[in-house]
């Protein structure tokens, strides 16, 4: 996947207006629900525990690139190949941009004052 592909997909998504935001102030950020489906294995808000890869601290391009690589890999005996196959490229880009957005804001995706512990170190593997 090349940079121009990212741009193409960004444009597509932008032009669709993301489809899920109705303009209400409480509209959830685009990609949040999709991205939360990664959390069972990669941690709440992408902060994994143990040896599992965290999704924090990576740019959208990096995450999207990895997902594309796994999705179109010839190595099919891989759990992430199967997972990535489950999503359209547009969905994968939404997931990537959501996690990158959390990293950029240094946020946790939490709306509670308690948050989810932003003192934790972002894991960039």
């Amino acid at each position: 996947m090349t940079i121009s592909n990212y741009h193409a997909i960004t444009l597509i998504i932008t032009s669709l207006g993301l489809g899920i935001s109705s303009g209400a102030s409480a509209a959830p950020p685009p990609g949040r629900l999709l991205a939360s489906q990664c959390a069972q294995c990669h941690g709440t808000d992408g902060r994994a525990v143990g040896d599992m890869d965290s999704l924090r601290g990576e740019s959208a391009g990096e995450i999207y690139d990895e997902l594309q690589e796994m999705k179109y890999s010839a190595k099919t005996n891989d759990i992430m190949h199967r997972q990535a196959k489950g999503y359209t490229d547009q969905q994968l880009w939404l997931i990537a941009t959501y996690y990158a957005g959390l990293s950029n804001r240094g946020g946790s995706g939490s709306n509670t004052a308690a948050g989810t512990g932003d003192h934790e170190e972002d894991d960039d593997d």
Binding site: A26, A27, L33, S36
Partner: peptide, 25 residues
Amino acid sequence: KVCADAILRAFAGEGPDPAPMTNSS
């Protein structure tokens, strides 16, 4: 998560995400 998201949207007067995904691993 799909259910929680739908309920929060409902409280905000919105319909649910029209294209939810789930997975089982």
